[in-house]
Deep mutational scan, measured.
Amino acid sequence: YKPCFVCQDKSSGYHYGVSACEGCKGFFRRSIQKNMIYTCHRDKNCVINKVTRNRCQYCRLQKCFEVGMSKESVRND
């Protein structure tokens, strides 16, 4: 598999339409299922990588959408 499109960590396969790691897969699923609203405490362009991905949930979710993750493919079960 290609590296995670969101944070470049080791991917566990294709999730919600893109190559993603377990961490970003779970983060995206929880964010969508719980209708989470995050805020960025900087200027909405935080670097998201394996080391920084937990620092800003707003920018991490934005990057999930930017790389093509589909909220329609998240099931509500």
Rank of each mutant, 00 (worst) to 15 (best):
R42E: 13
S19L: 09
V67C: 07
D77W: 05
C7G: 00
N45A: 13
S70Y: 05
C7I: 01
V6M: 02
M69Q: 02
D77M: 11
C4G: 01
K25C: 11
A20R: 01
N45K: 12
R55N: 15
G23N: 09
C46M: 02
R53W: 10
C59K: 00
L61R: 01
R60I: 02
I48D: 06
G26L: 05
V47H: 09
V18C: 08
G17S: 06
H41D: 12
K44C: 08
S11W: 01
V18L: 04
N49K: 05
V6E: 00
H41F: 11
K25H: 06
R53Q: 15
F28Y: 04
S19E: 11
F5C: 06
N76V: 12
A20S: 09
R29C: 06
D9R: 03
G13V: 06
K71S: 11
N76R: 10
C56L: 00
V6K: 01
L61W: 03
C21W: 01
G68C: 02
H41I: 09
R53Y: 14
K50T: 14
R75P: 12
F5I: 10
E72I: 07
G23K: 05
N76L: 11
E72V: 07
H15L: 08
R60F: 13
K10A: 14
Y14L: 11
N54F: 13
K50W: 15
C59A: 03
Y14R: 06
E72C: 09
Q62P: 01
N54I: 15
V47P: 12
F27N: 00
S31D: 01
C56G: 01
I32K: 04
N45R: 13
T52E: 14
T39N: 11
V67P: 03
C24W: 00
C4T: 00
C4D: 02
N45H: 10
V47I: 08
V74A: 12
Y58I: 00
R55L: 15
S73M: 13
S73C: 07
V18I: 11
Y38W: 05
C56P: 02
C64P: 02
K25Y: 09
K2T: 12
K2S: 09
C46D: 04
K10N: 14
K2Q: 12
T52Q: 12
R42F: 15
Y14T: 12
S19K: 06
C4V: 01
N54S: 14
E22L: 06
N76E: 15
I48V: 09
R53P: 14
E72P: 08
G17Y: 14
V18Y: 05
Y58C: 12
K25W: 11
Q62A: 12
H41R: 08
G23A: 11
Y38K: 08
C46L: 02
D9C: 03
D77F: 07
N45G: 09
P3K: 12
C40V: 01
Y1Q: 07
F28I: 04
R55Y: 13
K34V: 07
K10C: 11
Y1G: 08
R55Q: 15
D9S: 02
C7H: 00
N76S: 14
Q33A: 14
V67A: 10
I37L: 09
K25T: 12
C56I: 00
S12E: 10
Q8W: 08
R29Q: 13
D43R: 10
Y14A: 14
G17I: 01
Y1V: 15
H15N: 10
S31G: 01
M36C: 14
Y58V: 02
N45P: 10
G23F: 05
G23D: 15
F5L: 09
V47L: 12
F65A: 05
F65Q: 07
D43N: 09
L61T: 01
F5A: 12
F28M: 04
V6R: 01
D43M: 09
E72T: 11
I48M: 12
Q57M: 09
V18R: 02
H41L: 09
S70F: 08
S19D: 05
C7F: 00
S19T: 11
E22T: 07
N49V: 03
Q33I: 12
F65W: 07
V67D: 01
E66Q: 10
C56K: 00
R55V: 15
N49C: 03
K10D: 14
M69F: 04
R60P: 02
Q8V: 03
D43H: 05
E66T: 11
R60V: 04
K44T: 10
C7L: 01
R29A: 13
P3R: 05
K71E: 14
Q8L: 09
C4Q: 00
F5W: 05
S31L: 03
V67K: 11
K63F: 02
V18T: 14
G23E: 15
R60N: 01
S19N: 08
E66I: 08
Y58Q: 06
K71H: 06
G68A: 01
Q33N: 13
G26H: 08
C59I: 03
V51C: 06
F27H: 03
N35Q: 13
A20Y: 03
C40I: 02
R30L: 00
G17E: 08
K44M: 12
K34R: 07
S70V: 12
Y1C: 11
E66D: 13
T39F: 14
R55A: 15
K44V: 04
S11Y: 04
Y16S: 09
D9F: 02
R42P: 00
G17C: 06
R29P: 01
G13E: 09
D9G: 03
N49W: 05
V51W: 15
Y58W: 14
N35V: 07
Q33E: 10
G13D: 13
N35K: 15
R75W: 13
N35M: 07
N49D: 15
K25V: 15
C64L: 02
R75V: 12
G23C: 14
S11F: 04
S31C: 08
V51T: 11
K50G: 14
S31V: 05
Q57N: 10
M36P: 06
S70G: 07
V47G: 08
Y16P: 08
R42C: 14
D9I: 02
Y14P: 14
C21Y: 01
Q57E: 15
E72Y: 10
C21M: 02
M36V: 13
F28H: 05
I32L: 09
S12D: 15
F27D: 02
S73N: 07
M69G: 01
T39C: 09
M36H: 10
I32W: 04
N54C: 05
Q8E: 14
E22Q: 05
R42H: 04
V67Q: 10
C59V: 00
N45V: 12
C4W: 00
G26M: 04
V74C: 11
E66W: 07
Y14V: 13
G13R: 05
Y1R: 06
K50R: 14
